[in-house]
Design a protein around this nucleic acid. Structure first.
Lengths: 211, 211
DNA sequence: ACCTGAACACCGTTCAAGT
DNA sequence: ACCTGAACACCGTTCAAGT
């Protein structure tokens, strides 16, 4: 069967789930596609171009319609949660996405939705754009951390031991008091908490500028 | 001269400024140190261990004392700005830092300072920890983007042309209206805007829980 | 203890040659 | 047009052997 860009991307995403971004190589991909090593370079200029196509595929159909009759802050939380889900749908999805510089179609659609929604809430275009950046930074960075800790060996046991060893009662009293929350045992609650924080910030900066 | 861990880290950071994280290799580092290729492995278990030592060196002396008599939100902004400066001090500093899983001494000191400051503002330990996470995610993600765009060839001219080509008046009216703010021509103003947003969110969530 | 020499098992990318 | 075969110029890491 002849290769197509879509097929290469689909197989590459499956391979990503299997081996992780670190070990995703063009040679393993060629094996998975049952072709020789240089074949994919006829369809993609470089590995980077393939990774960007994969990143955009991750976001496919992301903001397919907003729920009607909701206030703007609910909508913003909804879109942010959908972005998180899209990034979580594949191993290392967040790092894959943040490695893309190119303006990708689905990423633009996401941005347009979020900026439009915030403009509807009363922000001017600059404030809406920068607030979208802040929200997106938050989502991507959170999911990056989430996926890194999920990939730890031993379910993170060794990491927790190292953390305990590094924490000193004299120098880190507050971190020790928060020790059980540092290990991030509730990623979704953790995510929602920070998301509500950022949205509350958007709300208060909007109220300040329109009052 | 014999190698020391500190000397290896210092030369590695200079090499990082010169070639960027992508092209920082153990072989180039050995050349810069004027030793043969495997020598650094006597001092660092792996490249990853070296990168983590470099990341911690980046944060050296980061929160060396807080200004006295300031309200908590000023202090939080101060610490966040110092983190940004530390990450900006070396090429790809933000990506270097976000690639570290290990609990590094200077990173812990930063976290202790920020959590303590927020506890002082009236947050409980969990809220203070998660707010610190949100702030840190924001700073690291913002500086990552900042350093990626700063490293673009042509001063980002080609990237701007690609963005204009990708924006469609019918599908991206809001992004087009915000086009001049998308290119991020004022990184510090952009950073401060988002920082104020997150801090305002922390303030409002604190007010909600203490009222 | 600290480093060299040399190898092992990989990489991304290119490109003439085949079909 | 699309892919193979084979090479180029690299990688991180290991480890016996030297000093």
């Amino acid at each position: 069967m002849r290769l197509t860009r879509d097929h290469v991307v689909a197989v590459a995403l499956d391979l990503l789930d299997e081996v992780g971004l670190e070990h995703l190589t063009m040679r393993k991909l060629a094996d998975a596609l049952d072709v020789r090593n240089g074949a994919t370079y006829w369809h993609f200029r470089s590995k980077q171009a393939l990774l960007e196509a994969m990143a955009d595929a991750l976001l496919a159909g992301l903001p397919a319609g907003l729920p009607a009759g909701q206030p703007w802050d609910e909508l913003a939380a909804h879109v942010a949660r959908r972005l998180r889900q899209a990034l979580l749908s594949r191993r290392d999805g967040a790092r894959l996405f943040s490695g893309s510089f190119f303006p990708l179609p689905n990423a633009l659609a996401y941005g347009e939705t979020m900026v439009g929604l915030l403009v509807g809430a009363g922000l001017d275009h600059r404030a809406a754009t920068w607030a979208t950046d802040t929200l997106t930074y938050y989502v991507v960075a959170h999911v990056t951390e989430e996926q890194l800790t999920a990939a730890l060996p031993d379910g993170g046991q060794a990491a927790r031991v190292r953390l305990d060893a590094a924490l000193d009662p004299d120098r880190h009293p507050h971190l020790l008091a928060a020790r059980d929350d540092l290990a991030a045992p509730h990623p979704t609650a953790h995510f929602d908490h920070g998301l509500a924080l950022v949205i509350a910030g958007i709300r208060s900066s909007r109220d300040r500028s329109t009052s």
